[in-house]
Design a binder for these strands. Structure first.
Lengths: 190, 190
DNA sequence: GATATTTATTAAACCAGTTTAATAAGAATC
DNA sequence: GATTCTTATTAAACTGGTTTAATAAATATC
């Protein structure tokens, strides 16, 4: 779990003993391509760190798949709202590739934060970081054209386009496969 | 500062002595309507709790005002990214009404979190809450039509429409004043 | 209370997306 | 290797916004 340790320490200093205490609760989980970490009506008990693979986080509303996020190596994630509120999920977390995650249960997270102030600080800072990322995403959604958002994704997460089918990327960008195809055509004509 | 105390305790238990330690750093600040808590190129040293009034958080890009958020009574806010990274702001925080905030400096926040594990927990949980709110907003932006988002805002923050001019609400919803006017007309014809 | 300024609506032309449907290309399966 | 299923592109008609400009209504100022 060196990668997890490293990622945690990129946020704040954590002593070896605190780190050891925290890491003992993480369990290795393997998901085959096409299998689900969660589906609607299930409860989300875990917080995850993605070690290897790719997970899409989406809902299906009125028959339409809406991709909210693609999680790849180094991401912390869960289905946060159901996780916090302890209510059934309305979403899917599906492995788009064979995927390895480190999972820690909510009760164990609580134990860790009670035990270690430094790790609670890590919790706050990582939450803060995702807050900033989300906020930038909101502004991007409102200020940029679809074409600009496509180009930005291409620049920031280029490997995604090799790993994920285009219609899911279209969904992530908030448009239809037809719409994305048009944008790509328009760009290639320049 | 009873309202601030109450809001903090709505997140997690905080002992009287920790609370007292934390609150001593908050300063009362008053902003006249039309004045700024921050403008581009300034640094953001404070974290705020809005006691009374209304503050709009916006950028001006290529001559166009883009409202990112309206903060009203009970909101915690700052210009988070410049605050974290200690870089100059690119945004405005403008009092749309005479406004009272409680302000705490970043260095004092650090002192408080170092002193009190419980208050750091509050910090994490409040960050987590805004994370959830932002996430819901992202999904709203992507899944709902402009008309639906207008109706939702009308339902969730009805008083905003009495406090804030319509063209700023249009901007917040990501459309032009003309566009919002059309939506309103369409709705009134039913 | 008349005048100037700001804010909201309406109209017309335009455009970037949508939906539906057909086609083409690629990948998986027998 | 032929067939089936999945994914991506293209076309055509449509739609909900945009921009620009004119007008109307509301608000502030002298």
């Amino acid at each position: 779990m060196e990668d997890l340790k490293k990622t945690i320490r990129s946020f704040t200093h954590v002593s070896d003993s605190d780190m050891e205490f925290g890491l003992q609760f993480y369990k290795n989980e393997v998901y085959k391509k096409g299998s689900f970490l969660i589906q609607p009506d299930q409860y989300m008990y875990n917080f995850y760190f993605l070690k290897q693979g790719c997970v899409s986080y989406y809902t299906i509303e009125e028959g339409t798949t809406r991709v909210m996020e693609f999680f790849t190596e180094g991401y912390f994630f869960t289905d946060l709202y159901p996780y916090i509120e302890e209510i059934p999920s309305e979403s899917y977390l599906e492995a788009l590739e064979d995927t390895i995650v480190y999972a820690i249960s909510k009760t164990d997270v609580q134990k860790v934060f009670d035990y270690s102030h430094a790790l609670e600080r890590f919790g706050r800072l990582s939450m803060q970081k995702t807050f900033v990322i989300n906020f930038q995403r909101i502004n991007q959604l409102r200020n940029l054209s679809n074409q600009e958002r496509y180009l930005q994704l291409l620049e920031k997460r280029p490997t995604l386009f090799q790993r994920v089918p285009q219609y899911l990327i279209a969904s992530y960008l908030g448009l239809t496969p037809v719409g994305l195809s048009k944008i790509r055509k328009r760009l290639s004509q320049k």
